[in-house]
């Protein structure tokens, strides 16, 4: 059953992504204002939504771990954070590639782009922390705390950067009025959502295998802690 879901989400995601991107590149009408470079949207915008959903899943899992203390919450939190980081990295990279021809610069202090950059660092820190704590239970608690703090920061960063840039900033996203464009965007967004779920499931599986290994030798739990470091 679980295997079927994993394969299913992967296949559906891949097909939808090929469809959405293919139609977006060769079928959707050219944007009147921005020209062909607007086609970047079908690759760029869905990564933003997907990364945010992945981080939200990770946040919920962090809270869940602190409340219920079940390992699965911790594994999901870790997996979703890592997958979110991958999509976040893609978001930053495609944003820069898009920014260069439209604004003439790779990076602007657009509130959304900046928030994405800060989130990338925050979750990079979250994953880095996980690598340095050997005891699984301690790692899970500490990581859950860090994950909650990191996610809570996102809206504050967004609004602070918006104020910082001045409140009268023009939004830079092209208007998607054509139904063809909306369709391509939606296809790509659902594709990445499916792929995200697929990756998270696979990453959870890896985490579980590693955890089983860590928890396997019985004396480890007793001997691992207590002595001065």
């Amino acid at each position: 059953m679980r295997h079927a879901v994993m394969v299913g989400t992967g296949v559906v995601g891949l097909v939808l992504l090929a469809l959405g991107h293919g139609l977006g590149l060769f079928w959707a009408p050219t944007d009147k204002m921005m020209g062909d470079v607007q086609r970047m949207m079908y690759a760029h915008v869905p990564t933003a939504w997907t990364a945010l959903v992945a981080y939200l899943i990770s946040f919920v899992a962090c809270v869940g771990y602190l409340f219920f203390g079940d390992w699965t919450w911790d594994l999901v939190a870790e997996a979703a954070a890592e997958v979110g980081l991958v999509f976040n990295g893609l978001l930053l990279a495609t944003g820069m590639i898009w920014g260069r021809p439209t604004w003439g610069v790779y990076w602007t202090w657009d509130p959304r782009l900046t928030t994405a950059g800060v989130l990338f660092l925050l979750y990079g820190g979250y994953l880095a922390l996980r690598r340095f704590v050997d005891d699984p239970e301690r790692r899970a608690s500490l990581a859950a705390v860090v994950g909650i703090l990191a996610f809570a920061d996102a809206p504050i960063v967004y609004f602070s950067v918006r104020w910082w840039r001045g409140l009268h900033q023009i939004q830079s996203t092209p208007k998607t009025v054509d139904p063809e464009m909306v369709l391509c965007l939606r296809l790509s967004a659902f594709a990445m959502l499916f792929l995200m779920v697929h990756f998270v499931l696979r990453r959870v599986q890896i985490g579980r295998a590693r955890l089983d290994r860590e928890l396997a030798p019985p004396p480890a739990a007793a001997a691992g802690w207590g002595g001065p470091r």
């Binding site: 470079v37 970047m40 690759a43 990279a93 495609t94 021809p101 792929l195």
Partner: peptide, 20 residues
């Protein structure tokens, strides 16, 4: 060819390569 296509192509290739 529209020079913008180079950027678009780079972006799409990046997405597929990274996810792969």
């Amino acid at each position: 060819m529209n020079p913008y296509w180079e950027y678009v192509r780079a972006g799409y290739i990046l997405v597929w390569v990274v996810l792969g």
